[in-house]
Write a protein that binds this DNA or RNA. Sequence first.
DNA 1: TTAATCATGTAACACGTTACATGATTGC
DNA 2: GCAATCATGTAACGTGTTACATGATTAA
Lengths: 185, 185
Amino acid sequence: MSLKHGLLGLLNYGDMTGYELDKAFNASLGFFWQGKMSQIYRELGVMERHGWLTSERVIQDDKPNKKIYHITDSGKDELQNWLAAPESDISDAMRIKSAFLMRVFFAGETSTEQAVKMLTEFRDECIEALEGLETTSGSIAEYGARITGEERIIYWQIASSFGESYYRAMIDWTEKAIAVLEGRA
Amino acid sequence: MSLKHGLLGLLNYGDMTGYELDKAFNASLGFFWQGKMSQIYRELGVMERHGWLTSERVIQDDKPNKKIYHITDSGKDELQNWLAAPESDISDAMRIKSAFLMRVFFAGETSTEQAVKMLTEFRDECIEALEGLETTSGSIAEYGARITGEERIIYWQIASSFGESYYRAMIDWTEKAIAVLEGRA
DNA sequence: TTAATCATGTAACACGTTACATGATTGC
DNA sequence: GCAATCATGTAACGTGTTACATGATTAA
């Protein structure tokens, strides 16, 4: 249900079109939730049918026509309920789901070299991702400047600092694993 | 595609029924990939149609009849290809997807107390999960004793040590976040 | 007597991905 | 001339979840 709630949260900051929502979503929430445009358009339709949103069609002649979405009181209620929901999403957040780890699990069926290669690639990607985070925190600051409210920025920073902790832990883990495999060889 | 590959990997250790696969899956891979029984049965059907498996029906009169699955050469090929696939699943493993983080992101719409409560609950769950991991490594040892191959056990331990790194990082992050919020209040 | 274990599945729905379709304007 | 931006969607498929159906045996 979280794509819907992410969209609600963004529309709570102000009216937007589906196209703008897609960009705002990727620029802010995109770090910990991904949604394709086609899915966003579909979900907006569902949400409108739920009565969480209303839409208004705007005719343009220099650019394609657009449809501006507006959050309703019912939508704001839904957002608040979700935010206040005791324990919701936590058990979900605890669960690790990783096809990569599954490959590690079965790596005994291949050679040690292949396993080391796989882990090395992973570590390199983690390092890159960690470096990329500086860009992300930059875009958060930018966003924060535009949309008011210092209280909000604190939470954005907390959420984005998750990435740092996460990638650092991954790099650590991978390097230990590589050391174990190379020590054994 | 990873549920399929997990099942292939397990069937590569030996023939099993859908019911046994469900239990083996949850006892070993369940830590980083979850699959419901109904989904497992469906996927087994698909895999058999792909020619990755064959099945044999066994009539029992004290217990319900069962169907034993056996991996084919084509299935073994598929498993090897997946294991050798350069870079597959890595970009997937990098992506963070967390509805919980989305709630943190929007926590500015509620009170600081509520945000602290949410984070505290999360930290507590992480601590519990970390403690629960000792049980997991126990069950890995048990599994390792039954299914031969010391090379395999190493990878199982590497995969399961991921959890430790992960939960420790989460606990750290949460505690820093709580400190920031409480310092501000 | 009640719950758990054994054992199989179907049906419907929810969510995510990929491919396709359309078409003007603007900057390199 | 070519790619990007603006702007909306549909269709089909893949994967994950929930609910339902059946029914014997065994241990607390």
